[in-house]
Design a protein around this nucleic acid. Sequence first.
RNA 1: GGCCCCUUAGUCUAGUGGUCAGGACGCAUGGUUCUCAGCCAUGAAUCAGGGGUUCAACUCCCCUAGGGGCUACCA
Length: 519
Amino acid sequence: MSDHETHIRVRFAPSPTGHLHVGGARTALYNYLYARKTGGKFVLRIEDTDAKRSTVESYKGIIEAMEWLGLNWDEGPLRGGDFGPYTQSGRGVLYHNEVQKLIDNGNAYYCFCTPERLEEMRFEMKEKKLPPKYDGRCRELSEAEVAERLSKGVPHIVRFKMPHDGTVFFRDIIRGEFSFENGNLDDFVLIKSDGNPTYNFAVVVDDAHMKISHVIRGDDHLSNTPRQIHLYHALGYNVPKFAHLPMILGSDHSRLSKRHGATSIAYYRDRNYLADGLLNYLALLGWSLDGKRELFTHQALIEKFSLKKVSKNPAVFDDSKMKWINSEHLKKLPLTKKIVLVQGVLNDEGLLPPAFDVDISKPVDLKIVPGGEEMTGKKALNYNMNDKETERLGTIINILGNRLKLLNDVPDVIGYFYTDDYRVDEKAVRLHLLRSEVPNRMNKLADEYERLKYFDRESVEKVLRDLAFNLEITAGELIHPCRVALTGKIVSPDIFWVVVLLGKTKTVERLRKAAKFYS
RNA sequence: GGCCCCUUAGUCUAGUGGUCAGGACGCAUGGUUCUCAGCCAUGAAUCAGGGGUUCAACUCCCCUAGGGGCUACCA
């Protein structure tokens, strides 16, 4: 690694005018990954120069979302650093010093044109099918004239004096060489009449002062880059390297907006998606390792990421793939971790502590649970659950297996283990319970279970199969109504495990209740 | 209007002049099973269009079309 590479500094610079959305998060992620991969620094800077649109709620929301995602910044709000402040509203003096430099060396000038005149001018130019550029009226104002208007307090802005001829060249890490004719660029605004810098000016000043080595951002900024390069030159700073990321589009291929529904990071956080899963999916939106491997842990992302492998084409956000990635991450979590997460969701839904005690007569041997993972370390004692309940939950999660794809499905998928007030699927009832022969069978099954001494999986299955044999029906004809009676659903994990984990008392109670209710 | 970027299945992508155009999600079918999920197997589906260059083009060049961006005292 060369000396230069040891000084890699990148930044994510959102404006606090809304929530952190998937596009911004992806940009933040790539910056973060690049910094971690290269041992550089990741800076978070808040670009709040638009006083009208910036809000503290957005600011807080962005910071919270970044933290939830685990995109830890080295310098910025809450962390500080040697190049602060990291909020542009706190850097006013700096912009004014810098713009003064530009005015002094003839690269910028005061402009007294009113917004009304500019609008008129633009309108006329459009009529004449000319590019709507600033006409440069104030560009050649004499020093005396400027001084006079200034002293009178005439509202003004500051513009960059763009050369009329020449070409600006630059190279983008992802897209290669670019050149822009200066003639197509106009005298853009540096300082607004409220004294705040514009985006194009503030980014350059801040990136230069914060010693940003690589500017990694969305390609909606590609067209701004030539203007910014002029500023770097005029200000006498080194031009950083650029990497313009393809944008993330909505399903209709238009720019992501509120119309597209689920675009905010908070939305997924609130629905109990896993941060690492989201990161994984976001990473894939515009980057791939080899087109084959798609599942990456946070750490693997850092190891494998490369700017060179970022694609040029815009990507459409696909919810179903994101769900899949999320489920894969969920699958891979160790059991103890899953228990804690599931407990959290159950608790949020008011399902903890359980509405009833379940007495499992014989402790469940996790070794015989399909794909059963044993609990390691001490049990997770959260949300008023005792050891036994925690162990039961661990077993429930084990028997659930891959059926659990989204943590948010937990209440629906296993709620019946925790309350009697669970949702009953009418279709399931119609299909399996509303039949004349069923109530009697359910009662018989309840009788058998009531008599059972050891309520373990083996016994519970034997009882049911023996009963089916005696009644001269298939096991399925008992199993399906039993499932609906116990869970209210047409689908569930292995029914015998459900019986065991629901416990003798509840199982018998629900079988009888179903028999009575649907006879 | 001007300037700029992008274009492989529905979606994300691999591909860098000669490949049966590979993978993944999703979809469909079959197998396993008490249901579902899973797992296994199988299948449908792609190089935007047109010109060149070349013995050979998804790959290089040009044009067209489509999509996106910038052109703000938004960022």
